[in-house]
Design a protein around this nucleic acid. Structure first.
Length: 517
RNA sequence: GUGGACGUAGCUCAAUGGCAGAGCACCUGAUUGUGGUUCAGGCGGUUGAGGGUUCGAGCCCCUUCGUCCACCCCA
């Protein structure tokens, strides 16, 4: 028969078996128990959702990486994360539950990305959502739950990075930047630090081609006294969109000027306003970048970072609500029990998902070979419930672990023992198979992992197989044993064996495994 | 999306342009009912696919598919 072509697994998808599979189940059940102990109830959610669920609030990065398709006139997506699903389920079915509501989940998600080390297209998230609880204590509860979860798995040497979306936001809001530029800067705080300003300006030019010209004009303006027209322009800049729009309309009306084009008058005014404001973006961008750099330097021990942040807020005349929030959260975290890992407060931390509104955090782990992986990410998203149609504005926050990354951290760290003790039951001749199956069944009743050898291979081969499989014990039964109502119980580790009556065999096996394991 | 490396037996990899190989794994056997060693044998390939150069291509050239790694971003 001609062999057919192999069918390979899809890129970025993995088969999980044997030792890794059992390690994985242990990690998942340990975390599930841990969350359960903190009163987080498990939920199981669909893997497919309406694409729309991820377009509302998740952000372009997630949307671009969606596995998404049309099916019978519907747009359907494989979930790229679970928070949106949990909130969707909450809005759909759980809104009459008393708050706070604590939920946990565990399951596969899908993102169409280039696979590489510790990154797959299908991976598993294991996490929680805390719905209807706001404030530093709720935030601290989540930080603690994440850290203690890692500790429960035996991971102690991690780094918890805490930030707050509003720190950078209040800084940028003060400058009244255009929406597109503001969100660009929000997203690129990390890049400013990692690659430096020059490189960030390069990518800024891509979305704001007038960057250089605007910057030059802005600087010239700044050095000159405002001309006649400039005062009016400054007035308009300081108004809200609606006010400014109305002001221009009124102004034109009062002079009986009609805009005589084939376009709608409102549209023309919008463009005019847009133009006036855009001209001002250049110098503002410079100020923004300056301040962001200062902010980005504030990362380290919580006390130091906070002190620096308060000083900056004072200098730039910014609200300190977010800072006070962070300070309280970090205090409260100590009351939950101080985490064993290192805590870093990072004023420049930002995350790709757009729905975060407050606290954000990541947990990183560095193995001995110096590669650092992110194990966990999360934060607060107080308006997601409303965005997804919830009846009341409801605070919510959560985090999730990447299960595969936890496993790789555990593997590189300690190398937890994965071999389960097991028993091979071996018939000497084919006539002994029935007796062999009966023994196996009796052992399984006592929850002992048992393999029955039924393929008729020789005793020699069967023992060799059992050895290779890592069986701790072998039970051999042949004609002589059957007649005596006994079996040979052989300890594969010590090579010792003895005859044991069948009725006490399960108990004997249990005892041997108990002391050996 | 951008950049780099690589596709040869189930796995890890060899092979100046000159008969496609080794180790491991798997199967069988070495006095009839006893396993980590040893010995003998066996199975296993359209060298990812397609085209070109050449007397001759696993090797050189082009195309294509795939994989891995890094960037971006994230768990």
């Amino acid at each position: 028969m001609a062999t057919a072509d192999k069918i390979a697994a899809l890129r970025g998808m993995r088969d999980v078996y044997s030792a890794e599979h059992s390690a994985r189940r242990r990690v998942e059940s340990a975390l599930a128990q841990h969350f359960q102990l903190h009163s987080y109830a498990p939920v199981d959610l669909p893997i497919l959702e309406n694409t729309e669920l991820y377009l509302r609030k998740s952000g372009e990065d997630i949307a671009a990486r969606l596995y998404e398709f049309q099916f019978k006139s519907r747009r359907i997506a494989l979930r790229p994360e679970l928070t949106a699903s949990v909130i969707r389920a909450y809005v759909e079915q759980l809104q009459d539950d008393p708050l706070p509501l604590r939920l946990q989940y565990n399951g596969p998600v899908f993102r169409y990305e280039k696979p590489q080390l510790h990154r797959y297209r299908q991976f598993s998230l294991c996490g929680v959502e805390l719905i209807g609880a706001a404030g530093p204590l709720a935030d601290a509860e989540l930080l603690h739950l994440a850290c203690s979860g890692l500790e429960r798995l035996g991971i102690h040497d991690y780094e918890l990075r805490i930030g707050h979306t509003q720190v950078l936001q209040t800084l940028l809001d003060k400058l009244a930047l255009r929406y597109q530029l503001r969100s660009f800067l929000l997203r690129n705080m990390e890049n400013l630090r990692k690659r430096g300003r020059a490189q960030l300006v390069d990518s800024l030019r891509a979305i704001y081609p007038d960057y250089d010209a605007a910057a030059a004009v802005g600087r010239a303006d700044a050095g000159q006294p405002a001309g006649d027209g400039q005062q009016l322009i400054n007035l308009l800049r300081d108004m809200s969109d609606d006010e400014a729009h109305q002001a221009i309309t009124d102004f034109l009306r009062s002079l009986s000027i009609r805009i005589d084009t084939n376009r709608d008058e409102g549209e023309v005014i919008d463009r005019l306003l847009h133009k006036i404001r855009e001209d001002q973006q250049g110098p503002k961008l410079h100020v923004a970048l300056d301040r962001m750099q200062r902010l980005g330097e504030l990362a380290g021990a919580p006390e130091d970072a906070l002190e620096g942040a308060y000083a900056l807020a004072d200098e730039f005349e910014l609200d300190t609500d977010a800072l006070a929030d962070l300070e309280k959260t970090i205090d409260a975290l100590k009351d939950f029990g101080a985490p064993s890992g290192q805590i870093q407060l990072d004023m420049g931390l930002s995350r790709g998902l757009h729905y975060y509104t407050g606290l954000i955090f990541e947990i990183h782990y560095s193995s001995k070979d110096a590669e650092t992986v992110q194990l966990c990410g999360g934060g607060r998203y107080d308006n997601l419930v409303s965005s997804l149609g919830g009846a009341n504005a409801t605070a919510a926050a959560g985090f999730s672990f990447g299960v595969e990354r936890l496993l790789s951290a555990l593997k590189s760290d300690a190398g937890i023992s994965l071999n389960q003790p097991s028993v091979s039951v071996i018939p000497v001749q084919t006539e002994d198979i029935a007796a062999c199956l009966a023994i196996a069944a009796a052992l399984r009743k006592k929850k002992i992992v048992t393999e029955a050898m039924t393929d008729g291979r020789s005793l020699r081969r069967a023992l060799k197989y059992a050895d290779r499989r890592g069986a701790a014990l072998a039970i051999i039964i042949g004609e002589a044993e059957r007649e005596a109502g006994q079996a040979i119980l052989r300890d594969m580790r010590s090579h010792r064996e003895r005859q044991v009556p069948l009725d006490v065999l399960p108990a004997e096996v249990g005892a041997l495994l108990g002391e050996g394991g």
